[in-house]
Design a protein around this nucleic acid. Sequence first.
RNA 1: GGGCCGGUAGCUUAGUCAGGCAGAGCGAAAGGCUCUUAACCUUUAGGUCGGGGGUUCAAAUCCCUCUCGGCCCGCCA
Length: 497
Amino acid sequence: MTIHWADVAAEKLAGQGPQTVATGITPSGQIHLGNMREVMTADAVYRALLDRGVEARLIYIADTYDPLRRLYPFLPKSFEEHVGKPLSEIPCPEGCCESYADHFLLPFFDSLDRLGIEPEVHRADRMYKEGLYVDVIKTALEKRDEIARILKEVSGRDLPQDWCPLDVICRSCGRLNTTKVVGFDLARETADYVCKCGHQGTASFSGGGKLAWRVDWPARWSILKVTMEPFGKDHATAGGSYDTGKRISEEIYGYSAPYPVVYEWIHLKGKGAMHSSTGIVVTIRDMLDVVPPEVLRYLIIRSKPEKHIEFDPGLPLLNLIEEYDRRAGEERTLELSTVGAEGPAQVPYRHMVTAVQIAGNDPEQLFAVLDRSGYDTTNRDQILSRASNVRAWLDRYAPPFVKFQLQETLPSKVKNIDPELREALGVLAGRIEGKCAEDIHNEVYAVAEERGIDGKKLFGAIYVAFLGQKQGPKVGWFLASLDEEFVKERLIAASAD
RNA sequence: GGGCCGGUAGCUUAGUCAGGCAGAGCGAAAGGCUCUUAACCUUUAGGUCGGGGGUUCAAAUCCCUCUCGGCCCGCCA
């Protein structure tokens, strides 16, 4: 019996007072599955804490005050002028949201909700503007030399003479990365700066700028009293931002660094790590179109955070879904993956792949097909939702050989079928009337046997006649789901020449 | 150059902290249900635990070393 990693972390933290589990992501682009690992990891530990009766909260800090680093491939050329501005101060790239940051945050929040993750949200720009950072900014400026020394000692990085832990926003051009702080006044809580754009001015500690990342992070820990935080392996390396953050937190802010959980990246099978700038991205919303939220949770919760996840949205995704649906995984993992009261699906995803393609977009037809196959269709909402998952999967990720399409007219390939097989199709046409799926299926075997034909070949011929390809869904059930006259006509047409 | 994480069956992996018979799922193969249609049942095969060395009665597990993959030591989750 293995203790789940979330419980291991929770056990370490138990008995140390109320816990604040923090996560943070910069909404600089589509928030993808890789990013989601951070939040899922935090949520798993949060749940594990609650399960053992520890008082805990889950917070999510949106780094909305980070500057836009560069013109990402998905942005219009016109956004060049916004590079360097805080994400919260840039307009929405598609004109539908209040800001650039919101454009990527809102769909992400929607996804979190569906995943059953309900963090308290803190937007960095608001925290700065509301003055929550004023004290930590003052301390950082006062102890600038000490911070610089820590950064040098831990990361080996030499900072320029005029380095300042506070980056200010130019009042004229709105950029964070083009200004230089030339002086500050702790009493008035302002900093003086010059900007490359030619402007010079004075910026307030409340919203006039932000701390450099390596200082911002530990400062935030002390402001929000963070006790546990997962982060990507980029921050975890020796000399990385956790190491410097830990020292800054303890020595500058007198606050113990949070308990770390380091997570690995999620790779897209055959393409490498997900990264918004490389275009190797599957967004959370994309995935939620294809799998139910429980399965997405399961994907992340079943792997230990330090293992990278090789994610393949093609055929192997079905294994993951079915492993979850059949409750084949480890019990605690399944428990932590649950969202609400929704149970596992009654209809296996794989079968749904066939059913959906037979039924097309007609829900009644779909229920008819499923009823015929003997599945429980009482939970109609769940079935429709799964069916819509399956359609999206077929559309985007399914390998060609699982797809089929009923041919409106007799496929020309029928001409290549052996005459004796075609004849058998004609015989079959006369034997399906009023028969149920299973009986039709049996007729196929019966006809093949009577005529001394290899059953395999006869099945193949049927598929060619209806789908134009050599394989397809289970024949009896497939034919039974179609209009009987249509089936007869098609079989006769295929047998004639 | 220095560091961090990972390498266990064809694939995904548990077990590594705290040494004690290498386990599971998927896939594969064989058989069964008068039935290949991605359905079900039964059974089987599959391993140099990345390589080498060391410690030990005993090593996937601890130590050293090499190697492969990924990442970090500017910025960035």
